[in-house]
Design a protein around this nucleic acid. Structure first.
Length: 658
DNA sequence: CACAACATGAGTAAACAG
DNA sequence: CTGTTTACTCATGTTGTG
């Protein structure tokens, strides 16, 4: 059980990529030479990792080294680079020159050497070199003939161009290299058998304490002591080895993902067919340094997740261009159904990563301005059916005037807005609205264009509405509740401050949008639904299902903020729910044992919903827009972890081993 | 300490102009 | 086609008040 679980998790987290990921990550210092490893934004684990003795404490990297001959750090490092395809002599020479401490420097030097020595090497060596990078031998021979063997740069460029163009028959023509998933599985099996043997040998040991036992176990798996300690601290004393490895792995992926996924050259969303390609990461690193512009063009052509315009996803009510059929990757199929949400305008590469971690399901990008009077551009990754959706009735107001008829009287003709922008967690200051009033009072009738522009700019930025002559104001919390589709006063009372109401609402779902997606479940679960609601906030998913008339049987809601848990609990009681609501404070509490118990009690979850923190993704964040590796947004990986566990437990583990 | 008020741009892509 | 402008964004840090 334990072992199969780990295997399952490992597959999801593409473990072997890590090894080179981190190195590329480190090497990004080449673009910003004074890269600061001690910045407080880094995950704790990275700080520990870099201070580890080897300097390269990637667990997977060490797992690779584990089979090597020597025990000294020096031979480990040599083996490591030899494993990447460099000759042992060259590696030894470079380490002698540069020292063994700075692995970045070593790698860079090796890449330089290998590039510069190529022209003088024999033709077959040259071909082997490129074949080793993952190109097919036929292609390499052809390109070398075309370009001449003297110019390795142009060979690389041509090879890259050819392989990028060959989307249907990409680089995996190389007979040694299958597609990436089989590659990964091969590596996974190796890691897995290592793990297995560790498990056995570990039983012979006589650990002094439970913690010491786990520490030993993790270090034997190739993690540094520091990483293991951090993981144990974060996951709690009762955490299992799977959870600990999971934590370390997820944290490292989170850190590395953004640096690397832009380099990916598969086309996940273009036509529904998924191409996976073997990658050679050292090669990518070289290209990244030398062919940045070329890479960028490929990104834009092949890899970038393009937001649809108009942003209607698979379709919205009262709009043409409905898509009612799609083919989901097999791994994505339920049970359970899952539904993940986050901001659409995340930093580059984030949605590619999210999609990949959620079984390569194509995100559905929808702007809630097609459902209500305010915009809300979000991406949703889910495995729900998409035919026969229906909207909540009655339709909410669709324009500002419908939503706030009283503002019509004061609305100037030159303010042409019909929809509000995204409702956020903060509102405009009184000073700003006063400044606007003063600016407008200076002119009779129509204000000068400059003033108009300024006022309109601020109104758009802060979602201000006209509440009097020359007077604009931010929305009241209950008005935000209405726009988002919540019952009035949903967040009011019970000791909730006004600031917290804005914050909780700003972080929430738009009910009509989400309910439209959930509507397909109504026929499937007439007797009610078991819901696992992660990052549940003020209960957007619950409210949406309730308004659809789908009975809530058992709801497990995980939410860190007490005010939000109170709001949901209060709503639950006010609406006379007959099911059971289980509060959990932290996603970290939701380990395998806990889930197993819950699933046993409820007979499984029908739907797993979650919108993980966006603070490190949204453009509103001036300070820590760190992407998925960010302190809060990295909780996305907990969504994946928990979803994987739920799938694993519900589907049983027999098929996993076979 | 809780709460409120206020100041604080950048990253991205579409729209636009040349 | 290319460089420029425009538009938009589930926020954080600091200070002040009671």
């Amino acid at each position: 059980m334990m072992v199969s679980l780990l295997l399952f998790l490992l597959r999801s987290f593409s473990w072997p990529i890590l090894q080179v990921k981190r190195m590329v990550d480190n090497n990004s210092g080449g673009e910003a030479d004074n890269f600061d490893w001690d910045t407080e934004d880094d995950l704790e684990i990275d700080n520990y990792a870099i201070s580890a003795p080897s300097g390269l404490s990637t667990p997977c990297g060490e797992a690779v080294w584990a089979g090597s001959s020597g025990n000294s750090p020096n031979s480990k490092i040599i083996d490591h680079f030899v494993g990447m395809g460099f000759s042992r002599e060259m590696v030894a020479k470079v380490i002698e020159e540069k020292g063994e401490e700075n692995s970045d420097l070593i790698l860079e030097t090796l890449l330089e050497y290998s590039a510069s020595t190529l022209p003088s090497s024999s033709n077959s060596k040259l071909i082997d070199h490129f074949v080793g990078m993952g190109f097919s031998e036929e292609m390499v021979v052809k390109v070398v003939q075309e370009n001449g063997e003297g110019n390795t740069d142009s060979i690389l460029e041509t090879l890259l161009t050819y392989s990028a163009l060959e989307t249907t028959a990409p680089v995996q023509q190389n007979p040694d290299s299958g597609n990436c998933s089989s590659d990964y599985e091969g590596s996974l099996l190796n890691d897995f058998s290592d793990f297995d043997s560790f498990s056995e040998s570990e039983e012979i040991m006589s650990p002094s304490s439970e913690e010491g036992r786990k520490l030993l176990h993790l270090t034997k798996m190739g993690y540094s002591e520091a990483e293991a300690s951090v993981a144990m601290e974060r996951c709690g004393p009762d955490s299992t080895i799977e959870e600990l490895t999971d934590f370390i792995c997820a944290a490292q992926i989170a850190k590395a993902a953004d640096a690397l996924f832009p380099l990916e050259d598969k086309k996940p969303f273009s036509n529904g067919s998924i191409h996976k390609k073997r990658r050679n990461w050292g090669y990518d690193l070289l290209l990244r340094k030398k062919k940045l512009k070329l890479e960028k063009r490929f990104d834009e052509d092949d890899d970038a997740v393009h937001l649809p315009n108009p942003m209607i996803g698979f379709g919205v009510p009262n709009e043409p261009d409905q898509i009612t059929h799609r083919v989901l990757p097999e791994a994505a199929l339920g049970p359970p159904y899952f539904y993940y949400e986050n901001v659409a305008l995340a930093p580059k590469g984030v949605w590619t990563t999210i999609s990949r971690f959620l079984y390569d399901v194509e995100p559905e990008f929808v702007d809630s301005k097609f459902f209500c009077a305010s915009a809300r551009k979000r991406g949703y990754v889910h495995n729900l059916p998409i035919d026969n959706r229906f909207p909540l009735l009655p339709f909410p107001p669709r324009t500002i005037h419908e939503a706030f008829p009283l503002t019509r009287k004061w609305w100037p003709s030159w303010d042409t807005r019909t929809k509000l922008n995204c409702l956020q967690t903060c509102i405009a200051s009184a000073r700003l609205t006063d400044k606007i009033r003063k600016a407008l009072e200076d002119s009779d009738g129509e204000p000068p264009l400059g003033i108009q522009k300024f006022v309109l700019e601020q109104c758009r930025k802060w979602n201000l509405v006209w509440v009097g002559r020359n007077k604009v104001a931010p929305l009241e919390p209950d008005e935000v509740e209405m726009l988002l589709g919540f019952p009035r006063n949903h967040t009011r009372g019970g000791g909730i401050s006004r600031t917290d109401r804005y914050k909780s609402l700003g972080n929430s779902f738009q009910i009509d949008t989400v309910a439209y997606h959930f509507s397909v479940l109504k026929d499937k679960f007439p007797g009610g639904i078991n819901l696992l609601s992660l990052f549940s906030g003020i209960g957007g998913a619950e409210v949406a299902l309730h308004r659809l008339g789908i009975p809530l049987k058992n709801v497990v809601a995980v939410e860190i903020a007490e005010v939000n848990r109170n709001i949901l609990r209060s709503w639950w009681e006010q609406t006379n729910q007959r099911g059971t609501l289980t509060d959990i404070q932290d996603v970290q509490e939701l380990n395998g044992d806990r889930l197993e118990q819950l699933i046993k009690n409820f007979g499984g979850f029908d739907l797993v919903v979650g919108g993980s923190p966006c603070n490190n993704l949204t453009g509103s964040n001036r300070y820590h827009r760190d992407g998925l590796e960010g302190k809060d947004s990295a909780l996305f990986f907990d969504f994946c972890r928990i979803l994987d566990l739920v799938k694993c437990i519900m589907n049983g583990t027999k098929s996993m081993i076979a």
